[in-house]
């Protein structure tokens, strides 16, 4: 496996995301990089991965190409089962989704995410400084997928000590059994992949913990771009850069027209 010398920040996120997924498991796939990561996993180590889309499609092979929407016609062709949104979320609530990929504009140290608004909640809810699209299905996936994988581009404002709005619940305040006490079922944030490294959430405190650094990053450089104090694994390792073959699959097979993966 030749290591690629020419890959982008998005491509390393995709490769890292793909590697978290296990074969023969069900992954609830959101729009964008999660679709690319799930396809890459299917084409490499996880050929029997089962993608589920929130508009209803279960298990399509996606041979007709990369969908641009989780309701896209491309998710329907070759699917084993398709109803609508209620059916997809009911299956997730029941426990059929092993993994879910979610993102947001802000994340805190417990893996809670904001994709609703920038501004003052609750007083400024009806007059946000910046209005974001809203939860969509992200908060449902956060509540009910068994494990969630968070993807957030790394910078100090996005990795925030206090969210301006909590859209998708992670480990809440980090206290013991916080999710269970709140009434949720899934075990919550499992991994976070940023543009700088890979993180998990420490078992006791549920705080974000650096596991692996991406090339060019150190513990110090990552902490410097994080708005709260990170934990570090006992042995923080370097994540291997994408291989030439992985980059080729992303660029030539999965997203040849650059729908989600930009070349620059």
């Amino acid at each position: 496996m030749t290591v690629s010398k020419d890959y982008t920040a998005q491509e390393i996120i995709i490769v890292a995301g793909a590697k978290v997924l296990e074969d023969k498991k069900v992954v609830f796939v959101g729009t964008g990089l999660p679709m690319v990561a799930s396809l890459l996993a299917k084409m490499t180590h996880a050929p029997s991965l089962i993608p589920v889309f929130e508009a209803g499609a279960v298990g399509p092979d996606l041979a007709v190409g990369l969908p641009v929407s989780v309701g896209d016609s491309k998710t329907f062709t070759s699917a084993s089962f398709v109803k609508g949104l209620n059916s997809a979320f009911e299956m997730t609530q029941r426990g059929f989704a092993d993994y879910g990929f979610i993102g947001g504009a802000e994340v805190d140290m417990y893996g809670n995410l904001n994709s609703t608004m920038i501004g003052d909640f609750p007083d400024g809810y009806q007059k946000p400084k910046i209005r974001l699209p809203g939860s969509g299905g992200a908060s449902d996936m956060a509540a009910s997928c068994e494990k969630t994988i968070l993807i957030v581009p790394h910078d100090k404002r996005k990795f925030s000590a206090k969210l301006q709005y909590l859209t998708s619940p992670g480990h809440l305040d980090g206290s013991k059994d916080a999710r269970w006490k709140a009434g949720m079922q899934g075990s919550g944030p499992y991994r976070l992949i940023s543009t700088k490294g890979i993180f998990d959430f420490e078992e006791e405190s549920h705080r974000m913990r650096l596991l692996q650094t991406f090339p060019g990053e150190t513990k110090e450089s990552i902490q410097a771009e994080t708005g709260f104090e990170l934990l570090f694994a006992d042995n923080v390792t370097a994540f291997a850069p994408p291989t030439e073959e992985e980059v080729r699959l992303i660029r030539e097979e999965i997203d040849p027209t650059g729908i989600f993966v930009k070349r620059a």
């Binding site: 909640f121 509540a143 909590l166 809440l172």
Partner: peptide, 8 residues
Amino acid sequence: RGPIAGDV
């Protein structure tokens, strides 16, 4: 079981 915790 939706977003029972959080601001939604």
